[in-house]
């Protein structure tokens, strides 16, 4: 299967990309690693008339410390994120989740920014970023702005990015030593998207939970926070009964899909089990 015809333009810089998007209007699409867009184009479910290629913007390919944050450039390959020493030291959750996206070949090409910008509720990195209260750095015609993860994901394949915006970087916090994390990805085959995924970031304090942030993958039209769980955990004892009780709130407010891998009902039940396991693992780290 071959995409419908399109015009191809290679961007030489972020500003060039913004300009090209402005020039070609709504029918233009950004492409980097192409692992979200090209499969849709091959099936002709997406048919942009112009592709603006930012694949070679190597100045956006980095993972570096920025004060109490880590900044990940948008064209950093998923494999580089997964293998990043900086992330291994300061935020292993991001590296772990990136290492479970797709397969090795996909991770060699697919970019971290591309995955985030695609806004797929079944994708792992957006959920992790939501749980981490990450910041998205966006360049557009009006210059640069920063968008909190909570405000970035707006719906099914829908983000805060305007038609001329380019996501340039993502900032995540350094996790303190008292903070445990987990990403539970439940799927039938290793290559599959998560039927349900759970990201947990848990701050411990003297045998209880000081603060927990829980993100859910594929439980609605966009990545979601399990706010009911988070509320139930605030100050709760870090013991199995309390964790299980809190995890019971996982499906609250979600609207999971039904598909050939699982019904909405099953996903709701699964989210409880996976949240509990994520909490147990996070607290054990």
């Amino acid at each position: 299967m071959i995409p419908a015809p399109f015009e191809y333009v290679r961007a030489e810089s972020v500003d060039h990309a913004v300009a090209l998007l402005g020039e070609h209007g709504e029918d233009a699409k950004l492409v980097a690693g192409g692992h979200s867009l090209l499969p849709l184009m091959r099936l002709r479910l997406a048919r942009p008339s112009v592709l603006v290629d930012v694949d070679r913007l190597d100045d956006l390919a980095y993972v570096r410390e920025a004060g109490d944050q880590i900044e990940i450039g948008a064209t950093t390959r998923m494999a580089e994120v997964a293998a990043s020493e900086v992330l291994a030291t300061h935020n292993p959750l991001v590296a772990h989740a990136a290492g479970h996206v797709g397969d090795p070949q996909v991770r060699h090409r697919g970019t971290f920014g591309g995955s985030v910008a695609h806004g797929d509720p079944a994708s792992d990195p957006p959920t992790v970023l939501l749980a981490l209260d990450a910041q998205m750095v966006v360049r557009g015609p009006a210059g640069e702005r920063t968008v909190a993860a909570r405000d970035f994901f707006k719906g099914l394949f829908e983000t805060d990015l305007g038609p001329q915006d380019v996501l340039t970087a993502v900032r995540v916090p350094k996790l303190s030593t008292g903070t445990g994390w987990s990403y539970q990805k439940f799927h039938r085959r290793a290559i599959d998207w998560a039927i349900v995924g759970v990201a947990a970031v848990v701050e411990r304090s003297n045998g209880s939970v000081a603060r927990a942030a829980i993100g859910l993958t594929n439980m609605g039209l966009m990545p979601m926070r399990a706010e009911g769980v988070e509320a139930a955990l605030a100050g709760a004892a870090a013991e199995p009964g309390a964790l299980a009780a809190a995890a019971g709130h996982a499906p609250e407010g979600t609207s999971p899909p039904s598909d050939t891998n699982g019904s909405a009902e099953y996903r709701r039940e699964l989210s409880k089990v996976l949240v509990r396991r994520a909490l147990e693992e996070a607290l054990a780290r």
Partner: peptide
């Protein structure tokens, strides 16, 4: 189940 993304032929990992 219209493609190998959801017709679940397992890989070595599975």
């Amino acid at each position: 189940t219209s493609s190998l993304t959801n017709y679940e032929v397992p890989a070595a990992s599975d």
